[in-house]
Write a protein that binds this DNA or RNA. Structure first.
Lengths: 191, 191
DNA sequence: ACCACACTAGACCAGACGGTCTAGTTTCTC
DNA sequence: GAGAAACTAGACCGTCTGGTCTAGTGTGGT
């Protein structure tokens, strides 16, 4: 969850720039809400470049973007859990990061995958999003002990996070996100 | 939350048919994912009718659709809470209704407002969605006693519901929704 | 110097988009 | 039954969509 600046595109290769621009825009307007021309403008690249790097067009690019954020968050979770932190603490930390994300973008951008959920029905993109969620879920689940109860708690963790983000974005205030996640974290931590 | 069948459109007036068709489609594909022609086809009406009833076009129709579902759920919450049911129980009931909703549509349709979140930035539509969430939140909050802690719990209720729906739709299984909501309900009920 | 290759560049296309407009039809009112 | 108002009907328009295609440019190896 390091650097989503599309403002400094020159430092990245054009493929990375495309992914970064796409991710940022998709997180702000959802898959159907973003035109390819928007992405190209943000990445400052012509059409040819896109279809060279991503012959599959818009959807392949979106899948790459999803994969990128999925990896980033997954790695982050892994490293946090490796420090033997409690799951609730990690959840809270993630939530706070999402808050600053929301605030930085003036509540236009949705962290994680929320807005991408409005993706074409049976597509590979939907599959990619589903995979990402599964991976994150699994991180929490194993960190919580791998039991049946752990699975439940992991579900609550992710749901309260994604749901809270949605509430926060709509109300343009991080308050609701913080409240729901702290409460969830509280419950998750107790055994 | 009674009847979202677009299959029997003849029983409703054309304005209601438009709203029903629009709601159903928006819940399945999000605002930008639905073309006006899709809605007209589903409602079996020509373009003229739409722009007669909704001079504001797509967005005004979407706002009406949001208002419709907002009222329906709000009324439902009011009637449940009037029976002095515990908030956790009402939340669970709502969740189960969402589950059957998801299953009936083979996980194509998202209950409530989830997919509508990907709406144009500062629009009146976004405002309408925000209002709906506020009303639902307020129902839970007052039912929980109106305290600060009640507000927190209300946030968790709604977040776990919306987040759980998103998880469920992606995994094409109601399991994750049920798990997160039951856990949330458990926490909400205890004082 | 040569050439193969990775990449950029953007004109171009067919189709879909949201929205307007005029002409018709039904339905209500008196 | 006449006239007004509510509504239906769909042709039409300008714009924007995702995607293709050809031409060009830079860069590596040999």
């Amino acid at each position: 969850m390091t650097n989503h600046d599309v403002e400094t595109p020159t430092l990245m290769g054009s493929k990375e720039r495309l992914v970064a621009a796409a991710l940022s825009l998709f997180q702000a307007k959802g898959y159907h809400g973003v035109a390819i021309s928007d992405i190209l403008e943000a990445a400052d690249l012509p059409k040819g470049s896109l279809y060279h790097h991503f012959p599959g067009g818009k959807e392949e690019l979106a899948i790459a973007a999803v994969g990128f954020i999925a990896d980033e968050v997954d790695a982050r979770l892994a490293s946090e859990f490796a420090k033997n932190k409690r799951a609730g603490a990690v959840l809270l930390e993630l939530a706070h990061e999402c808050v600053s994300w929301l605030q930085r973008s003036d509540y236009t951008q949705t962290p994680l995958l929320g807005l991408l959920a409005a993706s074409p029905g049976e597509s590979a993109l939907t599959q990619a999003i589903c995979d990402a969620q599964k991976r994150w879920l699994a991180r929490f689940e194993t960190a919580l002990g791998g039991t049946e109860a752990a699975h439940d708690k992991a579900c609550l963790a992710l749901a309260s996070l994604e749901g809270g983000i949605s509430l926060a974005r709509m109300s343009r205030s991080s308050d609701l996100l913080i409240r729901s996640v702290t409460l969830a974290a509280l419950h998750i931590n107790q055994r």
